[in-house]
Simulated scan of single mutants.
Amino acid sequence: MLRIENLHAEVDGKQILNGLSLDVKAGEIAAIMGPNGAGKSTLGYVLGGRPGYEVTKGSVLFDGRDLLALRPDERAAAGLFLGFQYPVEIPGISNVQFLRSALNAQRRARGEPEVSAGDFLRITREQADALGISMDMLKRNVNVGFSGGEKKRNEMVQMGIIDPRLAVLDETDSGLDIDALRVVGDGINRIMRKPDKAVLLITHYQRLLDLVVPDQVHVLAGGRIVRSGGPELALELEREGYGAMAA
């Protein structure tokens, strides 16, 4: 589903990614781990198409399409969802307004009919109930006044409604207490652990991987993948740290 080959990228003239290659197949959850400054968030932003992150070499294919040739909105319509480490607040726009506009914009881009108001509210209520978010909260402005855990659960509601094929989740566990972590982990499994979907899960810690068990774990250091393995690799990193792998 996702094939990254020899990817180089820079920010403000500083090289961050240095020949990163990675394959993620449909039905897989791939964890990206690594020390601070390794390029993990940069990888997510490059895939999402954030301005200022310039690809200088390499290629990214998503379902056989040249992802780097698409605008951010086209990437979203193609099925890519980017979850942020620090979800932003959007004053003046309610969650339900934002989500319905986003969902129908993507459906129009794919030539699909828009979702009616009734169907949208039904889908939204189902996703919100599963993630412990009240409908009253969804009527509030996007993330305004939300706690860290509420923002992350709200982002899972967004993912459930958008229903992407590939989710790139940047440190979704950041700032979560035990209960919120469990809710978010259950949400990732429920929404994305399916044969036609895939997840790129960027994280520092094993605790999320206890709930969302990855099919593969990759260590990113110095802007490239330096080691890959199964779930046992994350346990090794938890015990021993990055050590020589990050050197």
Rank of each mutant, 00 (worst) to 15 (best):
V55D: 05
T56W: 02
K57Q: 11
K57Y: 08
G58S: 06
G58L: 00
L61C: 04
D63V: 06
D63W: 02
G64R: 09
L68N: 07
A69C: 07
A69E: 13
P72Q: 08
D73G: 03
E74H: 08
R75A: 10
A78V: 10
G79V: 15
L80E: 13
L82K: 11
G83I: 14
F84V: 12
F84D: 12
P87E: 12
P87H: 14
V88N: 11
V88L: 14
V88H: 11
E89G: 03
P91G: 11
G92I: 13
I93E: 10
S94G: 15
Q97H: 13
L99Q: 10
S101H: 15
L103G: 12
Q106D: 15
R107P: 10
R108L: 13
R108E: 15
R108A: 15
A109C: 10
R110D: 07
G111I: 07
E112I: 03
P113C: 13
V115A: 04
V115L: 03
S116I: 00
S116T: 08
A117W: 07
A117H: 07
D119A: 06
D119E: 06
F120H: 11
L121M: 05
R122L: 02
I123V: 06
T124S: 06
R125Y: 00
E126A: 02
D129N: 09
D129L: 09
D129F: 04
L131D: 01
I133L: 04
I133S: 01
S134Y: 01
D136I: 03
D136Q: 04
D136E: 06
M137A: 11
K139T: 07
R140I: 12
R140G: 08
N141P: 05
N143T: 13
G145S: 08
G145T: 13
G148C: 05
G148L: 08
K152C: 00
N154L: 14
G160Q: 01
I161D: 05
D163N: 14
V168C: 14
D170V: 10
E171G: 08
D173P: 04
D173L: 05
D173Q: 02
S174Y: 04
S174P: 09
G175A: 06
G175N: 07
D177I: 03
I178S: 10
D179I: 13
A180Q: 06
V183R: 07
V184A: 04
V184Y: 08
G185L: 04
D186A: 10
D186W: 00
G187F: 01
G187T: 00
I188F: 00
I188Y: 00
N189V: 07
N189F: 03
N189H: 02
R190H: 08
R190P: 00
